[in-house]
């Protein structure tokens, strides 16, 4: 146990300040975020992630949001197990036809006001997979989409920026 505490102390806090990237500057969005989440979602934004046909690349980067470098929970953002607990759906694609009904049902189970973000090139426009006998392509071909985060896959920073921007837009 002492070694665990020792390790924690030696590593210290590695969580990075929100970097200033392109505009709108992330740090400003980060500051606005707490206010927006406060107004809209009672201090916390609950996200239900839905893999609707992804290659799993986007999921790995969404996972990274929880690692200590990005620590997205510090903004009041957390991932939940049920759409019934969610304010936002983060949907990766392309939407396979075999996931179409499950995605619709997940959307229907999410209480309003619900935000939907399509993640990745495939979620945005079908990506390498496009539309076919097996793929519905973009998430917006199946459920209404409020915002899109592009990239193959989008980096954790792209994801953070996209989530913050989507919330900003809703206010």
């Amino acid at each position: 146990m002492l070694r665990i505490f020792g390790k924690i102390q030696r590593i210290g806090i590695i969580t990075e300040p929100v970097p200033r990237l392109d505009e709108p500057a992330l740090s400003e969005i980060g500051e606005q975020l707490a206010a927006h989440i406060g107004e809209l979602f009672g201090g916390s934004l609950a996200i239900r992630e839905v893999d609707a046909g992804s290659c799993n690349g986007c999921e790995l980067e969404i996972h990274a949001l929880d690692n200590p470098y990005y620590g997205i929970e510090r903004f009041g953002v957390h991932f939940v197990a049920s759409p019934r607990h969610a304010d936002m759906l983060l949907v990766t694609g392309p939407v396979s036809r075999h996931m179409e009904a499950a995605l619709r049902r997940t959307y229907d189970a999410t209480p309003e006001p619900r935000l939907v973000i399509a993640v990745g090139e495939c979620g945005a426009n079908g990506g390498e997979f496009g539309t076919s006998y097996a793929s519905c392509g973009a998430v917006s071909n199946v459920i209404p989409v409020d915002a899109v985060i592009r990239g193959c896959p989008p980096t954790p920073l792209d994801l953070m920026r996209g989530i913050l921007e989507a919330i900003g837009r809703k206010t």
Binding site: D51, S54, S96, F129, G130, S132, Y133, S135
Partner: peptide, 9 residues
């Protein structure tokens, strides 16, 4: 569930 038709496309 995530069958995307990879072999066909």
């Amino acid at each position: 569930y995530v069958h995307k038709g990879i072999e066909k496309i």
